[in-house]
Design a protein around this nucleic acid. Structure first.
Lengths: 209, 209
DNA sequence: TGCGTAATGTTGCAATTGCAACATGCATAT
DNA sequence: ATATGCATGTTGCAATTGCAACATTACGCA
């Protein structure tokens, strides 16, 4: 993950935040950010802590839209908080930075190194986000639970270059991420085990094919 | 859609392309770009024409990953051409620009207005791409064909602020986009018509609810 | 105008899936 | 230790879906 303030000195970071009229906010664990953030065209940056963008629809189906670690950026300008069903929920005490997207973009003719560097860093981060979204879409467009699982494994084993996949979350959340029923997923995992395709030990999955 | 060269003069655009060691390529209608582009960390920009990123899996299922209009950017750094099943297919004669992502990003300490402006433009474009991807994910995570359709309609009627949805592609491609079987979609559309939820006239859908 | 091809509509059927309901396991706090 | 809550595992069943096969319509082009 690229630091949004990569290659920007502490001093310049302060100048930057002033220039962008940024606000720092603190949230306790398990609080909902959302309403603060939703209304306007805003970019948020996780300074410290951990949060999730979660959608809960009228049926009560929860879907994790995104995991927000330190340095992650989010916001109406970038994430799907446009949707009326989305919450950002902190999983730890979390410190975030709020920047108005329009103020940030409309600094014309800026010749400030730190400003341009910041924009460049954001470009790299959003590029990475697009890649992640594409992976998710690639998985979601598979038509069977089995193929969704195998695609998920393929992508995530590929990242570590091994035959192991370490789940970054629990199975309930995995089902949410894959947009499938948890019990149906559990059943399919059982079949995959029985047929000798995979081995599951806690959150570590070994690919045997 | 934001022009990648917004706020950059013709003269500066030339300088920029030289600085970035950009290459211009021409493709005839219905040709496959792909192999030229796939290998490296590259950004492509559609100068003129129209193309699609299409994935065809081993079952022959086609999925339109992305529509590439004039000014659109794509590439291994940004799109999911990482996948081994992806093609970029031109639907018209198409002129594209190829830029090496690493060369572009690693121009340190640049104080050139046109360079910084270009990066900023790319940031705005990728931001928009993320929004689009999120919309698609929002649709794909719905569990029934009906809900996928309704979500698609909701999002796209919302854009024009009316009760009309104008499909940007045909129904076959819509089914690909929603990652559902075409005939099953056709059946569900019939039910939606019969139940008075929608009215379909060619590519215009009217929401009646 | 007519031909060929691609898109669309229709339907039966088998396979997959979601859902509900319940059992088991595991961790944490009192 | 045990109670409480949450994650996980299991299974029957009904609903949804994909698939295949075919009919019909629309469209581009000679």
């Amino acid at each position: 993950m690229i630091d949004p303030f990569y290659n920007i000195s502490k001093k310049n970071k302060c100048k930057l935040l002033k220039l962008l009229e940024a606000n720092t906010l603190l949230f306790k664990k398990d609080s909902t950010i959302l309403s603060t953030v939703k209304e306007e065209n805003i970019i948020g940056i996780i300074i410290s802590g951990y949060a999730q963008i979660v959608r809960t629809d009228y049926n009560g189906n929860r879907t994790i839209i995104e995991e927000l670690e330190e340095g992650a950026i989010f916001g109406s300008a970038i994430s799907s908080i446009t949707s009326n069903e989305c919450d950002i929920i902190t999983k730890e005490d979390t410190k975030i930075l709020i920047i108005d997207y329009d103020i940030m973009i409309n600094k014309e003719g800026m010749n400030l190194q730190f400003y341009n560097q910041f924009i460049k860093n954001l470009l790299q981060i959003t590029t990475k986000i697009v890649t992640d979204k594409n992976e998710r879409i690639e998985i979601l467009t598979k038509k069977t639970i089995r193929n969704k699982l195998l695609e998920y494994f393929r992508i995530n084993a590929g990242k570590s270059g091994s035959r192991y996949v370490y789940l970054p979350f629990n199975f309930t959340d995995l089902a949410d991420y894959l947009a499938i029923d948890r019990s149906a997923m559990s059943r399919e995992l059982k079949y995959l085990k029985e047929e000798g395709f995979i081995e599951v030990k806690g959150k570590r999955i070994t690919l045997l094919y």
